[in-house]
Nucleic acid binder design. Structure first.
Lengths: 184, 184
DNA sequence: CTGTAATTTCAGAATATTCTGAAAATCAAG
DNA sequence: CTTGATTTTCAGAATATTCTGAAATTACAG
């Protein structure tokens, strides 16, 4: 049960910082909070966190660790697979399905950016360009001001869309020097 | 009521694209949807959209346009002012307060990035660094793997934090060439 | 096939978020 | 002060989201 090194009990004179189990749980809770601040379902983010710091786990192990129902675990694991953040692996000779998270932070970042672009930015671009096109037809002073504003927004979001497209497909090696340049 | 150019009724042989009123409402609905996809309250995003394409409005005008209650309008207007996306202006001789949106898209972008960094990224950095520090103390093979993962995440998020800090305070003139370089 | 483990689905329950409307507080002019 | 316009607050209602648990389905070994 205890995931402590065997020597720990006899020394460690300083204040205890918590067991691996405790720090792991803290991380899972934090990552869940971070996820929900960014529009990702809290449980999904917690499962993701758990898998980031675990070997491949089964649905039952995830249920047990996070104390969640089978339906909840199944749905969110599927969603994570859908995002491309988790893959399911089958071990030969076993019926059960195991789930394993991608652990390369740059790949994780690329996947999230790509998915959010696809699901949220690109539709927004289309919607704004549609409004911009319609406002083009309108005449009158109010329409002119409206048209100007919409066009500025559309142009800006289009630029953001292009930038995220590049970011999503770039590798760490490509992004780092670029980030460092920005940081002076 | 009709915000159409006076000539429109006699020509416009092509299919009508909608009145200014209609396109404006479409834009407000779209911007609301975009906002909620990014973790911003839908009504807040709609009020923001309305103010983006309007002159300064009073609380009552916002209520009327969006068909929302006084409490709702007041709270969300205050939040927008808190974000720095809207300012309240007082006209001499009038008691009522008017609300006016910042209309420079680059300033809007900077404000949003700065606020999200302050409210969401920076706390995440602190939380992760806290976990990283605690995991440092732990011993054992499981702890080592855990520690490695947490450190990679912490380092990555720290980089993201720095980049957004720069982005938030940069002007259009500074960001554009940098974005264009990225786009080849 | 048959039996059983594993997975998926989904109606209703539990939670969380947002909104309303009216009362309370604030403010400024007289 | 007093009055009336304006703004703020917040309890309860309405809505939206997420979760549970068990039944239905699927998949596979024998």
């Amino acid at each position: 049960m205890k995931a402590r090194a065997k020597t720990a009990a006899v020394e460690t004179p300083a204040e205890p910082v918590g067991t691996l189990q405790e720090v792991r749980d803290e991380f899972i809770a934090e990552w869940g909070a971070i996820g929900s601040a960014w529009g990702i379902n809290r449980t999904m983010a917690q499962i993701h966190a758990l898998l980031l710091v675990s070997p491949a786990l089964t649905t039952d192990e995830v249920m047990e660790e996070l104390k969640i129902s089978r339906g909840n675990a199944n749905t969110n694991l599927r969603d994570l697979v859908g995002w491309g953040l988790v893959r399911s692996v089958v071990r030969k000779g076993e019926r059960k399905e195991y789930f394993e998270a991608e652990k390369d932070v740059w790949k994780i970042f690329g996947t999230i950016v790509r998915e959010r672009r696809r699901r949220e930015i690109s539709p927004a671009v289309r919607a704004l360009e549609n409004c911009a096109a319609k406002s083009e037809q309108l005449r009158g002073p109010d329409a002119a001001a409206f048209h100007t504003m919409i066009n500025q927004l559309a142009e800006f979001v289009r630029l953001a869309d292009s930038v995220t497209e590049r970011l999503a497909s770039a590798s760490q090696g490509a992004v780092m020097p670029w980030a460092l340049r920005l940081l002076k």
